[in-house]
Amino acid sequence: MSPTPKGPASYFPSIEEKYGRPVSEWFGIIRSSPLTKHMELVGWLKGEYGLGHGHANALVAAVRAEDAR
């Protein structure tokens, strides 16, 4: 049994279910954007793709954390 995800990853199952795209696809969308600031990306996901604030924020936070490694 895998551990319960914490932080931004805890949103991933509901993001995939609600918006019909795998998280890996969202990561690619975020990385393809010319925007670089966290809240700019959040606003863009909300406006362009209709994501809720919490879901957009979780995706951007996860991408930025992964890219910082």
Results as ranks from 00 to 15, higher is better:
17 E>T: 04
64 R>P: 00
69 R>N: 04
34 P>V: 13
16 E>H: 02
62 A>M: 13
30 I>F: 02
37 K>L: 15
8 P>A: 12
48 E>W: 05
33 S>W: 11
21 R>E: 09
62 A>G: 03
22 P>F: 09
60 V>M: 00
69 R>L: 15
68 A>Q: 09
39 M>S: 07
65 A>D: 07
57 N>V: 06
10 S>M: 05
3 P>N: 12
61 A>S: 11
66 E>A: 13
34 P>D: 11
57 N>I: 03
25 E>N: 11
19 Y>H: 05
6 K>R: 13
61 A>M: 07
30 I>V: 15
33 S>P: 03
20 G>N: 02
67 D>L: 11
12 F>T: 12
35 L>T: 02
17 E>M: 07
49 Y>N: 08
61 A>R: 13
4 T>Y: 09
23 V>W: 09
39 M>F: 12
32 S>T: 11
57 N>K: 13
62 A>Q: 12
39 M>T: 09
7 G>Y: 11
56 A>W: 00
17 E>Q: 15
56 A>F: 00
68 A>E: 14
29 I>R: 04
13 P>K: 12
62 A>N: 02
15 I>C: 07
21 R>W: 11
9 A>S: 11
60 V>Q: 00
11 Y>A: 14
32 S>Y: 04
30 I>C: 01
16 E>I: 06
2 S>W: 04
49 Y>P: 04
4 T>Q: 14
1 M>E: 13
44 W>N: 05
46 K>V: 05
15 I>S: 03
69 R>I: 14
28 G>I: 05
53 H>T: 11
23 V>Y: 01
52 G>K: 03
3 P>R: 13
3 P>D: 10
3 P>V: 09
53 H>F: 15
17 E>Y: 10
7 G>S: 12
40 E>K: 10
8 P>W: 06
31 R>Y: 08
31 R>M: 12
2 S>P: 15
45 L>K: 06
48 E>N: 10
59 L>T: 03
33 S>V: 09
51 L>K: 06
15 I>M: 02
51 L>R: 05
26 W>A: 11
19 Y>L: 09
38 H>E: 11
64 R>M: 14
28 G>L: 06
53 H>Y: 15
60 V>T: 00
44 W>S: 12
20 G>E: 01
9 A>T: 09
61 A>G: 02
68 A>R: 14
